[in-house]
Computed example of a mutant assay.
Amino acid sequence: MKKIVTGLLTLGIVGGLAINTASAAVMGDDYPATLKNASPDSMVDSWTMYNRECVSFVAWRLHAQNHFELPVGFGSAWQWGSQAKAKGYRVDNTPSVGSVAWFGAGHVSWVAEVSGDNVVIEEYNYNYNHNYYRRTVNKRDVSGFIHFKDLVGAKAATANTTPKQTPQNKNIAIGSNVRFSGVYQVNVVNIAKNSVASDKLSGGKSTTLNLIDAIPLDETNTSGTKSGNQVLAVGEYFKVNGTYRVLAIDVASNGIKVKIGAYETWLDMNQATPV
């Protein structure tokens, strides 16, 4: 029997917003409640930013979704572009999912989606009211895009954003054959593509770039023993059968690209074992 999936037609629902585009990473207002519910500028976050300011929200989003900690020395938003360049990070006019949209007049936002020249950004304190916003801008309206550690949705553009990094698993290279021997929980499904994604296997919050064809998967229990009706749904567990050739590596996110079944996908290198 072929494995199929059941659940939402889109990748998932995050923050009340449906995600169904190839570059989508919209998270909604995930800013911590302790910072969000306090009066503006009444608290200082972990990155020494005042709460409900644009810089605090972006620092949080980089931490929560990009798994990147903003270096010491980033203060007012108008300084971010020059500060990033001084610290060796790429700043250019090419947006990528997970990059920071920097406005030289004094504002920063997090890039959630890219479609041609249109860029969906998420931010705090647009129009100076200290609240969350999601809006679409033309990339030409942005002073520059800072590439600290872009999400897997922009692999080709982010491989050299932090040039001194090396892969955590030096035994895996392009052309290597790997297997994924763990037991993974389904976090999102896509019925249209008969595919699933697991945050553990993705190395963070799954996007459409982490979808895995369900055909080579076995539904299992939490111990990895094959069980169930082989119809995968959110919350159930699976194992990945077979070995796969590494097609590309992204050092910045420690990700590898493989083709499982009909689809190429980006997965966490730490979950792979060379064979």
Rank of each mutant, 00 (worst) to 15 (best):
A233N: 11
V55K: 00
A252V: 11
V114E: 06
L35M: 13
A112L: 08
T6P: 02
Q165V: 01
N194F: 08
S176E: 05
V119W: 00
T222E: 14
L70S: 08
S143D: 09
K193F: 14
V97G: 14
S227N: 12
I19M: 13
L8F: 09
F180I: 06
I256N: 02
V44R: 04
V58R: 02
H63E: 15
L151V: 05
G116F: 06
A157M: 12
T225D: 14
T220S: 07
Y126M: 09
V72R: 07
N118D: 15
S99V: 03
N254E: 14
S115G: 07
N20P: 00
S195P: 03
S253E: 14
V240Q: 05
T21W: 11
S206L: 04
G175F: 02
Q79F: 05
F238S: 06
A105P: 00
M49K: 11
G175W: 00
L209M: 14
Y263E: 06
M1K: 10
V251L: 03
R61C: 04
N171L: 13
V258S: 06
G261V: 08
G235R: 12
M1C: 10
W266F: 06
I19W: 07
V91D: 12
V44E: 01
Y89S: 07
N177P: 00
D150V: 06
L151R: 10
L8Y: 12
S181F: 07
V108Y: 03
F148L: 03
V120S: 12
I13H: 05
A252E: 13
K257R: 14
S181N: 15
F57I: 09
M1L: 13
R179I: 10
A84F: 11
A112F: 02
W110P: 01
H147F: 06
G15M: 12
I260E: 04
V246G: 05
D41F: 10
A248R: 09
L9I: 13
G175A: 07
M1F: 07
A252R: 06
V196W: 03
E264K: 13
L151S: 13
G255S: 15
D141G: 15
K170Q: 13
W266E: 01
V246F: 07
A105Y: 15
N20V: 09
Q65Y: 12
L267S: 03
T273F: 09
V275D: 02
G104H: 08
A197P: 00
A24E: 11
P32N: 10
V55S: 14
L70A: 05
C54D: 05
N66R: 04
V152W: 04
N210H: 09
I260H: 02
H147M: 03
D30M: 08
I4L: 12
G7L: 13
G12W: 03
T34M: 10
R135W: 00
L11H: 08
V58E: 06
L11A: 05
D29W: 09
I146E: 04
Q83W: 01
V188P: 00
G81H: 04
R135S: 14
V186N: 01
S198P: 02
S82N: 15
Y126H: 12
T21Q: 14
V97R: 04
C54G: 00
W60A: 01
S96E: 10
Q79D: 12
L201E: 02
N187K: 08
W80L: 07
